[in-house]
């Protein structure tokens, strides 16, 4: 029982991280119908920025967090402007290769700046782990879940309450119609990129204390976040959330009760399963509410 609870805790923590990454994927796909294969690299950059700002420079938590996210969002905007916007025929295959090229590029940048070593930073707060029925819940796990919830509430408010958010949603539903009523589509795409990469960076920021951060951590995280997004339903916020937790928990249980070698395979087995059974995901975006 205690064991199951422990696995569950670690599953929920990982699940929350996958959910944050999946939200980034999903919201970009929703706005631009593009899958950013470099998304995982933005997560990596977020974690490594945090290593510098929080770990090395000892900036206050909030300052370090904001500074990291701003850096990542800026990188995302530059990426959109220089590598995505100039593409004249945005076919999936071309965009896949460009974003893969970007992921290699960013990994290279990460290696040059932070070297090949893995880095760790302390938890956001020095609280001892909570003891629940004999299982330990790290304080960072609570931070992660709180930040996930804050992200979701923030996004909901942004989409429902602000004019920009509504314009973005309109643009996602129909570019043409949005254009007719005067919504600048290019601007919206750029904003979507900025937001999506910022959320990716945020995912990196919150996992930096619970993992070894290094330049090559992004690929696997990105792919798993992607699996989570597909599992829940690409393009749906609640789908990303559901997919993230489902993946995190099943992965943790798989590691606990079957084999640790299975850890990485879980995500992809689930991905294939959902693609074969219900390609739209558990909450398929067509029927579910979008963001």
């Amino acid at each position: 029982m205690q064991e199951i609870l422990q696995y569950l805790f670690s599953g929920i923590t990982n699940g929350a991280i996958y959910a944050v990454i999946a939200i980034g994927f999903s919201m970009l796909y929703n706005s631009t119908e593009l899958i950013n294969f470099a998304h995982g690299e933005f997560v990596m950059l977020g974690a490594l920025c945090m290593v510098t700002f929080f770990g090395a420079l000892h900036l206050p938590l909030v300052v370090a967090l904001v500074a990291s996210i701003v850096c990542i969002a800026a990188t995302g905007l530059v990426f959109e402007r220089l590598a995505i916007r100039p593409v004249r025929h945005p076919e999936p295959i071309v965009l896949i290769i460009i974003t893969v090229g970007a992921s290699i590029f960013l990994r290279g940048i990460g290696m040059i700046i932070w070297g090949k070593d893995a880095h760790t930073i302390p938890s956001f707060s020095a609280h001892p782990p909570l003891d629940i029925a004999g299982a330990k819940l790290l304080s960072q796990s609570i931070w992660i879940i709180i930040i996930l919830l804050a992200t979701i509430i923030g996004l909901q408010l942004f989409y429902k309450k602000t004019l920009t958010g509504k314009a973005m949603e309109a643009n996602a539903i129909s570019k043409r119609a949005a254009w007719i009523v005067g919504i600048p589509s290019k601007m919206m795409i750029m904003l979507a990129f900025g937001l999506s990469t910022a959320i990716g960076g945020l995912a990196g920021v919150i996992i930096a204390p619970v993992t070894m951060s290094s330049y090559d951590m992004g690929t696997m995280l990105g792919l798993k976040g992607f699996c989570a997004a597909m599992l829940g339903g690409l393009g749906s916020l609640w789908g990303a959330l559901l997919g993230g937790f489902l993946l995190g928990i099943l992965e943790a249980l798989g590691v606990g009760f079957v084999s640790s070698g299975l850890k990485d395979a879980t995500a992809f087995l689930l991905l294939l399963f959902i693609l074969y059974v219900k390609p739209g995901g558990i909450i398929s975006a067509a029927s579910a509410k979008r963001f």
Binding site: V100, G101, S103, I104, F105, G108
Partner: peptide, 15 residues
Amino acid sequence: FEMVVYGLILMLVMI
């Protein structure tokens, strides 16, 4: 700089 250049070439050719 190998990775950086490799990634850059990929992107440039595709763009």
